[in-house]
Simulated scan of single mutants.
Amino acid sequence: MSKVLIIGAGGVGGVVTHKCAQAKDVITGITLASRTESKCKAIAAQIDFPVKTAQVNADNVPELAELIRKEQPKLVINVALPYQDLTIMDACLATGVDYLDTANYEPLDTAKFEYSWQWAYQDRFREKGLMALLGSGFDPGVTNVYTALAAKKYLDEVQEIDIIDANAGSHGQPFATNFNPEINIREVTATCRHWENGQFVESPPLSTKHVFDFPEGIGPMNIYRLYHEEMESLVKHIPTIKKAQFWMTFSDNYLKHLEVLQNVGMTRIDEVEFNGQKIVPIQFLKALLPDPGSLGPLTKGKTCIGVIARGIKDGKRKQVYIYNICDHEACYREVKSQAISYTTGVPAVVGAIMMLTGKWHKPGVWNMEQFDPELFLETLGPMGLPTVVVDGGEWPEL
């Protein structure tokens, strides 16, 4: 019997719960926990599978450990906030349970996300015979797997990667983020870093722009370079990579609103005093913006997320483009969510299946590219995210 405990009842938590319920041959029990149990109950009510719910403060290790001991899962799936990764990992260590997340740790008071804090748990997990799988979303996650696939099957040496993420969907709102507004805005406004010639090179956020012609009818869109966490692990674990960049699409409307919010201080993450109380502007902004979970029925269009990998094959320079296309409306019909949450939630469940079936299982703390990519992709497609490979072809140098 493989029971899972899912922590986090946002948009991704909803998708993870739906998809765990579909994986009945592997996952036989589900508990969904959040700070607000009513959100868990609302998700459970959508699903034709018995889902237990619970209230838990994911910042509190003893409370998390008590819940884990009560429910006795084989795996904890963390889709709460990145600030809570370490407390949930601590609780897993205390209770002897495997761990999986979709985003790396980020301190609450510093807009900086990196793997160092979680990699530091390597010895503790290994010594207890436990596994922690980091970043089992899409980017990070599937993009790591795509890069590993390029290295395994299509290139003898991967030298350059461009990770390109397009949301070609529209929700009709003046300004909204497709996932947690606080995390989204912190990520987009952070100093850009890309890997080149053995080091990370910094540049102002969103200062480098190209037009990229996306496949399958999406067409040309503006893409902007920003820092994203999978580059940190990929250049460590695939050391032949000489250049790594991450690109994302943003509409002119999104960037216009974001610039104004920055200029007036609404994206600040430090406390300010207002009417005798301390508030954090970006948290107040989050309360004003549409809940990403409410965008599902409104969003139309597609996402396209993939990796262009360039390098050497049989002594010649070659490139391969590996990507997925996901339709917002199809996602909503299936799991009551838009494609941004879907493309994060489905890989989390596939990662869980890899761990629970033993296809990917090794004590310690690991990133996605450190395991066999083909085993993962064999399950990812039937779960709803098929992979397209364009072997060769001409794609622009970015």
Rank of each mutant, 00 (worst) to 15 (best):
L298Q: 14
M131G: 05
F214I: 07
K302C: 04
D109K: 05
E394F: 07
G293F: 02
D162M: 07
F214R: 01
A94H: 05
P363Q: 15
P107E: 09
K278S: 14
R310Q: 09
E394D: 12
D270T: 15
L298R: 13
K24L: 04
Q199L: 02
I325A: 02
L86P: 01
G351E: 00
V15K: 06
A244Y: 01
M368R: 03
V280Q: 08
P386K: 12
G29K: 08
G364C: 09
G276L: 13
A80L: 07
D85R: 11
Q173M: 14
V56C: 12
P82F: 04
Q72A: 13
I241C: 07
A54W: 11
W195N: 03
M1K: 08
A176N: 01
E259Q: 15
D101N: 15
I7P: 09
K256F: 11
D291F: 12
V346M: 11
K24Q: 15
L298D: 09
Q277N: 15
Q283E: 15
G96R: 08
L100K: 10
R35S: 06
Q370S: 11
P281N: 14
V26R: 04
H228W: 15
T189M: 12
V76N: 03
K152L: 10
F246R: 02
G11H: 07
V56Q: 10
L5I: 12
R124S: 10
T191F: 03
N144I: 00
Y227R: 11
G96A: 09
L206T: 13
V201F: 05
A120Q: 15
V388Y: 11
K152S: 14
Q22V: 01
A9C: 13
N60R: 00
Q199I: 01
V158Q: 08
M354N: 00
T53L: 08
L81W: 10
H328T: 02
D252T: 01
A33L: 09
D101E: 12
T249I: 01
V307E: 08
K112S: 10
V320S: 03
V307S: 03
N178I: 00
S136V: 08
S251Y: 09
A309P: 04
